[in-house]
């Protein structure tokens, strides 16, 4: 990557993972690095930028996707995916550098933690993966119909898809909706397949008596299980930051 041409351009794409991989393809084949990369929705017009919109090309993105696993490593693909889901501004440029250099030098790239953009990508992945793991525990379903469950979340990163995969393999017979209220995304699962849709208006019907009963039981259990003599609010808050409390059933 050292003698690549830096071009004074801002690339825009549609915000999808495929769109981003298309940019990676174009940059790697032309040996050029853009100044900035933005998803179209996040970009505000600026008369200093020379913008180019990169059309998503599934043929190209598929080649990059397979190429990462083949010529770098599975770990790199994994890191790229989770880093892409993070909410970090300018995440694209770091991942682009990480991937392009990775194609040049191979799986060694994952060990080069002292290189700033590799470290940055690893950190983004860590944060994203960590939040996903935390929400695997902190997400709460409510029964809103016959075998239909609803959960709302307010995550920092866009982790609805990996989170959905966890619950699909765990509760395969349960129909559920996971609602990301920050990004207005809904993951719907019907026992067979899942789909992620945009949603601005979701009305939840009032919950049943049965559901209320279990919520009461859970609240009671939560209160009872703590030992009074060992009270430690700071420790509790550290593990379970206040931003997650709004979606919980229990009241910490």
């Amino acid at each position: 990557m050292p003698n690549w041409k830096l071009i004074n351009k801002t690339f825009l794409y549609d915000g999808t993972f495929d769109g981003f991989l298309t940019i990676v393809f174009d940059c790697y084949s032309n040996k050029t690095l853009p100044q900035k990369i933005f998803s179209e929705a996040e970009y505000t017009f600026n008369f200093l930028d020379h913008t180019t919109y990169i059309e998503t090309d599934f043929e190209k993105s598929k080649r990059v996707f397979n190429g990462i696993e083949k010529s770098i490593s599975y770990t790199t693909l994994y890191n790229t995916y989770y880093a892409f889901l993070s909410d970090e501004p300018e995440k694209e440029i770091f991942i682009l550098k990480y991937l392009c250099n990775g194609f040049d030098i191979g799986p060694k790239i994952n060990n080069m933690l002292t290189v700033s953009y590799v470290f940055k990508v690893m950190n983004m992945k860590k944060r994203c993966f960590g939040e996903c793991h935390r929400l695997k525990g902190l997400l709460r379903f409510q029964e809103i119909g016959n075998n239909l469950y609803y959960a709302s979340i307010h995550p920092d990163n866009n982790i609805i898809e990996p989170l959905g995969h966890h619950f699909i393999s765990r509760l395969p017979n349960q129909n559920f909706i996971i609602h990301d209220k920050i990004r207005d995304l809904c993951l719907l699962y019907n026992g067979n397949e899942y789909r992620i849709i945009d949603s601005t208006n979701i009305k939840i019907p009032t919950i049943s008596y049965e559901e209320q009963k279990y919520q009461e039981l859970w609240k009671l259990f939560f209160k009872t299980i703590a030992i009074k003599e060992r009270k430690n609010a700071r420790c509790q808050m550290q593990y379970m930051p206040k931003k997650y409390w709004q979606d919980l059933i229990e009241e910490p």
Binding site: H133, K136, G137, L171, N173, A226, K231, N232, M240, P252
Partner: peptide, 21 residues
């Protein structure tokens, strides 16, 4: 219904800061 998770998952934390899993 259900599966195991190798690393374990904490679902909540009580007022004493101990995890409830």
């Amino acid at each position: 219904i259900g599966n195991g998770n190798k690393a374990g998952i904490c679902h909540s934390w009580g007022a004493d800061g101990r995890c409830i899993s």
